[in-house]
Nucleic acid binder design. Sequence first.
DNA 1: GGCGGCATGTAAGTTGTTACATGATTAA
DNA 2: TTAATCATGTAACAACTTACATGCCGCC
Lengths: 192, 192
Amino acid sequence: MRQTDYVILGLLEEGPLSGYEIKKIVDIRFGFFWSESFGQIFPALRDLAGRGLIEEIPGGETGGDAAGGPAEAKGRSRKRYRLVPEGEAALRDWMASPVARESYRLELLLRMYFGHLADGQTLAGQVEAFRRKHEGEALLLDRFRRELEPLKDKDENHPHILQVIDLGLKVNRAYLDWCRETLEFLEERTRR
Amino acid sequence: MRQTDYVILGLLEEGPLSGYEIKKIVDIRFGFFWSESFGQIFPALRDLAGRGLIEEIPGGETGGDAAGGPAEAKGRSRKRYRLVPEGEAALRDWMASPVARESYRLELLLRMYFGHLADGQTLAGQVEAFRRKHEGEALLLDRFRRELEPLKDKDENHPHILQVIDLGLKVNRAYLDWCRETLEFLEERTRR
DNA sequence: GGCGGCATGTAAGTTGTTACATGATTAA
DNA sequence: TTAATCATGTAACAACTTACATGCCGCC
């Protein structure tokens, strides 16, 4: 079992989803700390179904809208999967197991570390792009938080999701702070 | 050229290094935003040398000490590489190119997101382990910063390295803050 | 009829991890 | 002489990305 499998099991625990929907949720909700590609999700769904941890829901629906909205009868028919008890057991076992090594890869910091080999303008542009990205991320998380806060007693996992969002907000604030300082530093470097 | 190649070129720009030394530097200095394994470093060194971007320094030295200390005549003979002009050009080109997509994988946040499926004690233990790890990291960065600060005018890239350390410190502070809040949240959850 | 968006899927290639094999030296 | 540490290297595997192929539908 790889990490992708558990992401899928965890999301299916909230309700049935198709591969495409899983991808969208991971991109939007997990974006700041996780990513998955189609090339991981679809094979993982096939394998999980093969091992009897999830099952395909019969009667292929068609649709363009996620999460129970009105079926828009658009696009190719959707293949939704649901969690079965064996899958939930595997998920719970994993939840109790120790957390695997976390990994990061922030190329921008590599550029900064070797910064004396680039000109200040170029570096500043790269920092600026990073800043814009994380400004957007912070805005998204902020909106998501405001949507969820009033509903926090409606569902057992909402408080946990709020907790996750809070880390995203803190980290993004740290990034934005740093970008401000770093852009100042680079400006001064250019003047000298 | 993969990212590993540029990490190597960048480090060699400061002076000749062996694969083992590169690994140690990446672990200690880049630890909070990057990682490389031997399985990436050694083949990359071979390939870079093959393409004439770096070259092996003749006259195999033996040693246990990095960065110019007294040779301790310990262990198997060391194979050091140095950057050649072609490699420096490739490095500078890369520095001017746009930054590739950053990636993260924080499994702990996955656990938190699905937190309602685990008991509070277990989750708290996982958060606590995360806290300890990043406390250590913050301490390391702090020490590194204090060592480097007085020397910041001695070398063109020291101010850049300080800038990198500062991001590490900010992010780790954000993590530690979050851990405190989250442990409180989990404690309250357990009481209810 | 053709385009664009929704959706599923695969294959090829790249990248990265892990475990192991080797060798040399020092210290117990 | 055995263990530990330093150091290099490789092979097998696992994970991931990317680009593409397919198909269905609605719309112009």
